[in-house]
Design a protein around this nucleic acid. Structure first.
Lengths: 330, 330
DNA sequence: CTGTTAGCGCATTCAC
DNA sequence: GTGAATGCGCTAACAG
């Protein structure tokens, strides 16, 4: 039970705690013999430095807090993987905290980070970042990912508008004219931007002022519902561009189940390029999620080290991945 | 910059730091007026308690360390989701740490947890848990998940042997006799148990002593390679049972690409039930990953609170999910 | 090179 | 009820 502390090591090695500290941290102002004795004692006692105490006295936690929304599947794992890779290579640990929808809980989660981490990575496409930053622990350095934010904070965004435009032009180039969009949940930044990009591009490149937009919530079932609505409504639609892959997949499967030829009769496209997309041949916009996570960490770390990385906004452009749900028409 | 501390609040509220501490932590031995003054001062200054200092003085971090191998995709996100849900509901945070293949690095990661967390959740199907526990911070309470472990540690395991048996019997019941297995990487606990279960079940229920076993590494490409080997070798095989879904998928796609009818000519089955499996109609064994993560956390927390949860081993049995890659033969 | 001392920010005795 | 004092385990001056 009695946790072995630096003092136990000092006693056994017959030196002061200061020397133990120096020896353990590899400082060069220790006599080789002393270091050897310390290391031996530490090994014998099974001593492991108490990171908490270390942080307190150094005012440095070597950890960064990650606050993510309730992401699903690959999206979550990919961004965390990217962050972890970069963080661990820089000697930082990740303190995870899911931020549920409730802004109050969100603030709570953020506050719990004070004194445990050196900086924050926040991803909250559904909240206003200002509300968050207000309740934040005494201006902890932070990087926002996909957040509605002002220009005074370091931010990383996906170029949703540009991505939508690319996809619309791809569909147009393949001969589709009557393109419908399945939107994401209201209040979600990505959803709104993708919708806006869709509308903008349809106006610019197709001369369509009020394209058909079906409601959705980023989930598979919403895509299926949209497909059913499409079939029932009898609109003249020859392509569906969903705001994310899950909805595109729901739509795709529902269409095929209903006997609709995809892409022959209706083309389907999504956004994100989650792994399943490849297996289903879904055309989509690839967002390099892990890369974004890694960038977020590296920007934060640079700011922690150097001091003054400007609060710029970084835009990550997705790439189109054309597969079989939107092949060129004959 | 100057982080506001408990002393600043004390000064502004004109009370002692002790009273601030009491008021902030909701103790009842504080005069209502005093509490009000403290809370007002804290709000005015934007004071947020320093968790690190709190942990040090209370010898309690309210955090649990999670050490996972380099998991991919859904598997990773699901287990973390399950853990996070349970942990946050109990007021604990998760400190994440990827444990790469190297045992030395693994020990390193574990040691970094000392003084930051109250307990450990370790998942390491590829390492000997003893090696790990040896280098571990002064017996931190821990729960092992899918680890080769002795009986002296709390452990949660997937019933891989039983799962393989269930799958083999499913295949046999559907008229398949010549069943081949694609194995996972050597040294991996799950891989070994699934293989052992396969052999055992083939002997028991099919009377086959030396069933065909192809090498693999849990990755899609290994499944594809196995498929090619199968086609080239010309063995009489009418079913393939892969040690995980990724290989099953690689095998499935390669077979179909080569013009082999699945399941008509060869049935294919996997293990895990990752989300993609559903879209491809893959028959597999469902492992309730999130549930396992949640259980791991709750066992750890109970042990942290109560003191003496016995070091029992908990076995989670997977369920068979029969889909179209192994339908009943006519 | 090494030991002594003073905090880091907070919770918690113990007196008052 | 409240305040002063002590310590959690460690690092960082500051003397020797």
């Amino acid at each position: 039970m009695a946790q072995v502390t630096i003092r136990d090591v000092a006693r056994v090695a017959d030196v002061s705690v200061a020397s133990v500290s120096r020896a353990m941290n590899g400082l060069d102002n220790v006599h080789p013999d002393t270091r050897a004795r310390v290391l031996a004692a530490a090994a014998q006692l099974g001593y492991v430095p108490h990171a908490g105490a270390r942080n307190l006295s150094m005012a440095r936690a070597h950890a960064i807090g990650v606050v993510l929304p309730d992401l699903h599947g690959e999206f979550f794992s990919e961004i965390v993987r990217g962050m972890d890779k970069e963080a661990s290579s820089r000697g930082f640990q990740l303190l995870l905290s899911n931020m549920h929808q409730d802004p109050a809980q969100a603030g709570q989660a953020l506050r719990a980070m004070r004194g445990r981490v050196d900086g924050l990575l926040i991803m909250a496409p559904h909240l206003d970042a200002f509300d968050l930053l207000r309740g934040m622990p005494g201006n902890l350095p932070s990087v926002l990912v996909n957040c509605r934010a002002g220009s005074e904070v370091a931010t990383i965004l996906v170029d949703n508008v540009g991505g939508s435009d690319t996809m619309v032009r791809h569909l147009l180039a393949n001969g589709h004219r009557a393109i419908a969009h399945i939107a994401g949940p209201q209040g979600n930044l990505d959803a709104e931007e993708r919708l806006a990009g869709f509308r903008l591009s349809m106006r610019r490149h197709a001369g369509v002022e009020n394209p058909l937009v079906l409601p959705g919530d980023f989930r598979e079932e919403a895509g299926a519902a949209a497909a059913r609505a499409l079939i029932a409504g009898g609109q003249r639609v020859d392509a569906v561009f969903a705001a994310n892959d899950m909805m595109a997949i729901g739509c795709l499967l529902a269409l095929r189940e209903a006997g609709v030829d995809v892409p022959g009769r209706i083309a389907v496209a999504g956004f994100d390029d989650i792994p399943v997309a490849r297996y289903l041949g879904l055309t989509t916009m690839r967002v390099r999620i892990a890369e974004i996570g890694a960038r977020a960490v590296s920007r934060l770390c640079e700011r922690l080290a150097g001091g003054g990385i400007p609060a710029t906004t970084e835009l990550h452009a997705p790439d189109i991945v054309a597969r079989t749900t939107t092949t060129m028409r004959a």
